[in-house]
């Protein structure tokens, strides 16, 4: 396995998280200007829910892969199953956090929350660009 292919999931996810935080803060600022403090907090809550869910999924991937590495070795099927389990954990955590936010946050502005959530969820694709950049840099260096 050469160095080009050895790009860690945690690196890509932290790049994605950086973009998610930037987008969330941007949407929160716009919400603050348009509809006030509660809207800004709602937008931050929406973005934070997706980021926390993403990290919960990442922990799930690492736990699944390290367990599989010890037991049978990493086959593509095992990788895929651990990723799907991690995705299930992520969706459950996000749904749970959304439920708690909608139920207990009295001054919630729903549209701002959805805006922060959507922006942050879509910004997770920015990590893919980071992976490609890393791959191209390594290719140029001949690694």
């Amino acid at each position: 396995m050469d160095k080009v292919t050895n790009i860690k999931i945690s690196q890509t996810l932290s790049k994605a998280a950086r973009w998610q935080i930037i987008i969330t803060v941007l949407i929160s600022g716009i919400s603050l200007l348009v509809s006030g403090m509660n809207a800004a907090i709602s937008a931050i809550a929406g973005g934070a829910i997706v980021i926390v869910g993403g990290y919960a999924g990442m922990i799930g991937v690492f736990a699944g892969m390290s367990m599989a590495r010890r037991l049978n070795g990493l086959t593509p099927g095992v990788i895929l199953i651990s990723m799907l389990k991690a995705e299930a954990i992520k969706v459950l955590v996000i749904a749970l956090l959304l439920l708690v936010t909608f139920k207990y946050y009295r001054g919630l502005v729903p549209l701002s929350l959805i805006g922060g959530l959507a922006g942050s969820a879509l910004a997770s694709g920015a990590g893919l660009r980071a992976v490609n950049n890393k791959y191209n840099e390594n290719n140029e260096q001949g690694l």
């Binding site: 790009i7 999931i9 999924g57 990788i79 990723m83 799907l84 995705e87 879509l122 997770s124 893919l128």
Partner: peptide, 10 residues
């Protein structure tokens, strides 16, 4: 696998 993980999220 890194790309699959990100695309799953997307």
């Amino acid at each position: 696998q890194g790309k699959v993980f990100l695309l799953l999220g997307l």
